[in-house]
């Protein structure tokens, strides 16, 4: 990927996310918007393959901490919502004879917008797009000049979310399924047998930021959850499945996560900056 294309791509990503948030600010001056926030912890099985580090499939366990927020862009415009997510994940996986391990960590941020369809009563179908940025690494504990892989990528994702509210006698449960898949992006990858010493100490970056699409980055993530309100809060229980396969610079990576999730969900309103807090709200620090 040449420099000009790469810069245009970054500019596009930046412009998309900035313009969405500006739009959100402009049309939302008078109304209160609830933000639906879910904080959840996932624990599960993980499989990893990274041909730069090893020709073998590593298996083990991983956990992740996820913070998701959904809010309408405006109270008036109740068919467009903003979605943000941050997650931190870590895992330890071992080779088939348990003689070497991968230690992986990554931090990801997602931001995007969904359009709401209401095909049935109590059901919302959200269609939209997300932008993500991931920074992390994978370390193999016995390799010499290739002990780690840097995880650095930015992608545009297609996203589909389905909410279904199930009224029971005393409470309403919310069932959600969120499927997302990147369709174009850019990622860091060393060339086939290039050392990180050569890239970062000698500054030989050519070919290390290839553009990716379905052929070179096939990834999807599915999060199924059930929100269950009790007296004092709403719990979230669910499953997360994530599959990723990348093939760039003759190097291949694969990963598969299957996790169970537990967390809690709540709604809140924020008053930021110069905006005056309405009188019906009591400010604890005034």
């Amino acid at each position: 990927m040449n420099n000009v294309t790469f810069r245009r791509f970054l500019f596009f990503l930046f412009f998309s996310s900035v313009s969405l948030s500006l739009w959100a600010t402009e049309i939302d001056s008078l109304n209160y918007r609830l933000t639906n926030r879910a904080v959840s912890l996932s624990l599960g099985a993980k499989r990893e393959y990274d041909s730069y580090l090893s020709p073998l499939l590593y298996k083990g366990t991983g956990f992740s901490l996820m913070d998701e927020r959904v809010s309408f862009l405006s109270k008036k415009l109740n068919n467009l919502s903003k979605y943000t997510e941050f997650d931190f994940s870590a895992s330890v996986t071992d080779n088939p004879t348990n003689t070497a391990s991968f230690l992986s960590m990554s931090l990801r941020g997602f931001s995007g917008v969904h359009y709401h369809l209401r095909p049935l009563p109590r059901m919302s179908l959200l269609l939209g797009g997300l932008v993500n940025l991931e920074l992390g690494g994978r370390y193999q504990n016995r390799n010499q000049n290739n002990p780690y892989s840097l995880l650095l990528n930015a992608n545009l994702w297609a996203s589909v979310m389905c909410y279904y509210h199930i009224p029971l006698r005393t409470r309403t449960l919310t069932l959600r399924d969120h499927f997302s898949m990147p369709f174009v992006g850019v990622m860091f990858s060393p060339n086939y047998a290039q050392t990180y010493y050569e890239i970062f100490s000698e500054g030989h970056y050519d070919g290390t930021f290839p553009v990716t699409s379905f052929g070179s980055r096939f990834q999807w993530r599915n999060k199924l959850s059930l929100d269950f309100p009790i007296k004092i809060c709403t719990f979230r229980f669910g499953f997360v499945l994530e599959r990723s396969v990348t093939t760039v610079n003759d190097l291949e990576t694969r990963s598969m996560d299957v996790s169970g999730t537990v967390g809690f969900v709540y709604n809140f309103v924020t008053f930021k900056g110069k905006k005056k807090i309405p009188s019906e709200f009591r400010n604890p620090v005034e």
């Binding site: 090893s54 020709p55 073998l56 080779n95 088939p96 004879t97 348990n98 003689t99 070497a100 193999q140 016995r142 390799n143 010499q144 000049n145 290739n146 002990p147 047998a193 290039q194 050392t195 010493y197 050569e198």
Partner: peptide, 18 residues
């Protein structure tokens, strides 16, 4: 410059790649 790889039985190997 040597880089490492490994075998299914747990042995590992290094060889010149750069």
């Amino acid at each position: 410059m040597p880089m490492s790889s490994e075998l299914p039985n747990g042995w590992y190997v290094r060889m010149s790649m750069a």
